[in-house]
């Protein structure tokens, strides 16, 4: 058996090639739906019926047409989604890093108990909280406002957990050195720990941004005016009113997936690291 390891180059090459073919086939299956999506979005409506995936003439104007449809404020929804997700991400990363700093670098009585409370709520289904949260939003008059979307999502137990796991691994000696230099706790956080925790922050940023960009339940119950819709519920409205216009629908789908693909390609290294760190996508 041990001889198996010392294969000739030729046999090894065959093996590698076979492996590549297998992996390519799986990868092909993964991207086929996306391929169909792009190709269909470039078709004429009549061509959608055809068996062939390829459009006869590429209808690039389908894309601007999506923005021009009456009653479909696609551009606005795009903006809203990114706007809300950006605020949420910013706030969440900030508050999570503060809390994580407190949980990982400071010693205080009852710390672990509070942290355990945080952890245990992570297991609760979001639905349990949604209903009273909605009731509270009514009381606060935040229904159908951006604030109502942003604020409840700005605090996350998961984000705190992720950041804490990372900060725990930063050597304690740094704190001591800083203390000897006379740095305050805030300086320690702001000037030493936070820059070092950048990888975790980037990961959390990606998770939170994508999670919010994609979230559907909360905006669905919260937002009433079409000009305040985010993309997921906007797409839902698009589908329910113009669902049979397959080519334009696919153009809209492609455009709404695009930011995610860009972020993914740019950030994939940090993302992969982050998943190993925190275990799950938020």
């Amino acid at each position: 058996m041990a001889t198996k390891k010392k294969n000739t180059t030729g046999a090894r090459l065959t093996r590698t090639t076979l492996l590549h073919i297998g992996l390519s086939l799986i990868a092909l299956l993964m991207i086929l739906p996306f391929t169909w999506m792009i190709l269909t979005s470039l078709k004429l409506l009549e061509e959608v019926e055809f068996d062939s995936w390829l459009p006869t003439i590429f209808q690039w104007r389908n894309y601007p047409d999506v923005f021009r449809m009456r009653g479909i404020e696609f551009g606005r929804w795009y903006w809203n989604s990114i706007f809300v997700a950006a605020w949420v991400t910013f706030l969440q990363v900030f508050t999570s890093s503060l809390a994580a700093f407190s949980f990982s670098r400071l010693e205080w009585k009852g710390r672990d108990r509070v942290f355990f409370m945080y952890l245990s709520t992570m297991m609760l289904p979001g639905l349990v909280m949604m209903i009273p949260n909605y009731q509270n939003m009514i009381r606060l008059g935040l229904v159908n406002s951006y604030l109502g979307l942003i604020i409840p999502s700005a605090f996350s137990a998961f984000g705190t957990f992720l950041m804490r796991q990372f900060m725990m691994n930063i050597p304690k000696s740094l704190d001591e050195a800083a203390e000897i230099d006379g740095a305050s706790k805030w300086q320690l956080y702001w000037e030493i720990i936070l820059p070092l925790a950048r990888p975790a922050m980037i990961t959390l940023t990606i998770f939170t941004f994508i999670g919010n960009y994609n979230s559907m339940f909360w905006p669905l119950v919260m937002m009433k005016s079409p000009d305040k819709y985010t993309l997921p519920i906007g797409m839902l409205a698009f589908q329910s009113s113009q669902g049979q216009q397959t080519n334009l629908l696919m153009a809209a789908v492609a455009m709404s997936v695009l930011p995610m693909i860009i972020i993914f390609i740019l950030m994939q290294k940090q993302l992969v690291k982050g998943i190993m760190l925190g275990g799950v996508k938020g």
Partner: peptide
């Protein structure tokens, strides 16, 4: 000190997780 750092998050946590719970 610990609480001061925790406060922003904790308030949100109490308001949007514990209270609804």
């Amino acid at each position: 000190t610990g609480m001061a750092f925790l406060l922003p998050n904790l308030l949100g946590f109490l308001a949007f997780t514990m209270l609804p719970l």
